[in-house]
Design a protein around this nucleic acid. Structure first.
Ligand SMILES: NC(=O)c1ccc[n+]([C@@H]2O[C@H](COP(=O)([O-])OP(=O)(O)OC[C@H]3O[C@@H](n4cnc5c(N)ncnc54)[C@H](O)[C@@H]3O)[C@@H](O)[C@H]2O)c1
Ligand SMILES: NC(=O)c1ccc[n+]([C@@H]2O[C@H](COP(=O)([O-])OP(=O)(O)OC[C@H]3O[C@@H](n4cnc5c(N)ncnc54)[C@H](O)[C@@H]3O)[C@@H](O)[C@H]2O)c1
Lengths: 205, 205
DNA sequence: CACCTTTCGTGTAAGATTTCACAATGATAG
DNA sequence: CTATCATTGTGAAATCTTACACGAAAGGTG
């Protein structure tokens, strides 16, 4: 049941999870339907049912899905039952925003440490954390067994830093640097480049 | 030629453009091939050729693509020949990072104004800009004919702010708020939620 | 010039994803 | 208890996307 599930399906699960959490917060109802969820997300109900059916039968005919139960199941599928420690590399503007962002904790992640190579930044307090020198990066990541990192450093140092992180055991990497990164098989990479996103939209304007 | 081009193809053009710019910066060569470009991006050469062929014939057999020429063509296709003015809404941590980011200018966008509703933030200097009160938002956006906006405000005010922006004439919106937005037909929306991206990766860990 | 190498552009095949549509199931109301 | 209604889970069809493979062009070489 766990094999062979298309990436594109996995990619939608976090969206479902996020909307289920919103539904739970609204607190108006204990259950929802594929139709309601789809309507709220601009996705067809059939797609939602098909996606979920890859993992089991979570709904009930006539009633729909129990919001709490489906939330739990999706959290389990996405391995969010316990928190992932995350390392942030780069304590500039973006690192600053990330360190202060409180939207990670209740969704399965905790910023566990933040690194910089600028002596001026090292030691500075950021949110709950203190900026660490990048020379300690390998030691701390190995010691805390950190598997997830966020890159918020300039593009020209992103690839070498990626290599260091992977070498220290990081398996999932979200990069804000506007550059394609090369990683070994088995390491996940994801990118966030606002300019790419804007450029995708201007075509249609 | 302009109709019927799949969104997924449009979505890759900015990636090609970004890598072409890097190649130009490296300055080692005047031309590149679909094979080289694909190799650098982890995309098949056939896909690159097929994607480009939707818009015309930009290459030369035996030689490949002239980097400068292809860059120009892609910029034209994506409507990046002249700069788009961009409004940033929300002068918090993220708005701060965006206002100081110098990676927009050379890729077709210019942050033209930044808004906040917090009297403490209004008037503050951010990068080259001064934070404007959100009450002036409609006036300024209409006056400058701004079509592109970035949302960096809390989730619960994101939908009403979207409605205001769309009403003022915004046609493309990049939102950092972790919530699905509803917009009228013809308005483009794009999202950036790092938690969604991390959750997509933890499944594979 | 004849030959070789490179690389494009593209028709077609293969594969992936979405949509359709319906039997089956559970809830509800009279 | 039966009829009605809502909604799931899922094969099959339709659509979309990627990969393959090759003829044709361009440039270089002897
Ligand atoms: N600011 C934005 O809104 C924004 C938006 C999109 C993308 N980005 C990208 O995100 C990245 C960071 O952006 P930023 O605005 O925070 O930049 P920034 O210059 O404010 O911060 C970068 C930080 O990285 C540190 N650094 C540099 N080399 C390092 C190394 N080898 N090891 C550890 N730390 C190192 C610097 O000391 C600095 O503190 C850049 O790649 C940028 O292109 C930024
Ligand atoms: N900080 C991060 O790293 C990060 C990461 C991902 C997503 N986000 C999301 O991005 C958004 C902004 O995050 P942030 O960290 O900058 O938050 P922030 O609290 O630092 O900034 C939000 C700003 O929006 C302003 N604001 C609130 N309501 C407004 C309104 N109606 N009109 C105009 N301005 C208004 C506030 O005054 C504040 O200055 C949030 O939705 C957050 O969930 C943040």
């Amino acid at each position: 049941m766990a094999t062979d599930i298309p990436d594109i399906v996995i990619g939608r699960l976090p969206i479902y999870l996020r909307e289920l959490t919103r539904l739970a917060e609204e607190g108006k109802q204990k259950t929802t339907s594929s139709h309601e969820l789809g309507h709220r997300l601009g996705i067809s109900s059939a797609q939602i049912r098909k996606d979920l059916s890859h993992f089991g039968e979570f709904g009930k005919q006539g009633t729909g899905y129990h919001i709490g139960y489906l939330t739990e199941q999706l959290s389990d599928i996405l391995r969010l039952s316990s928190e992932w420690d995350v390392a942030v590399v780069g304590a500039g503007f973006l690192g600053h925003a990330l360190a202060h962002y409180n939207g990670f904790l209740d969704r399965g992640f905790r910023i566990a440490c933040i690194f910089d190579n600028d002596p001026q930044k090292v030691g500075e307090k950021m949110g709950e954390l203190i900026v660490q020198p990048d020379t300690d990066l390998e030691k701390i990541i190995k010691h805390k067994q950190i598997k997830v990192a966020i890159l918020a450093i300039p593009p020209h140092v992103a690839q070498p830093m990626t290599d260091r992180l992977v070498n220290a055991g990081v398996k999932a990497l979200l990069s804000y640097a506007p550059i394609h990164l090369t990683v070994p098989e088995g390491v996940q990479v994801s990118y966030s480049d606002p300019v790419i996103q804007l450029q995708r939209m201007t075509y249609y304007l």
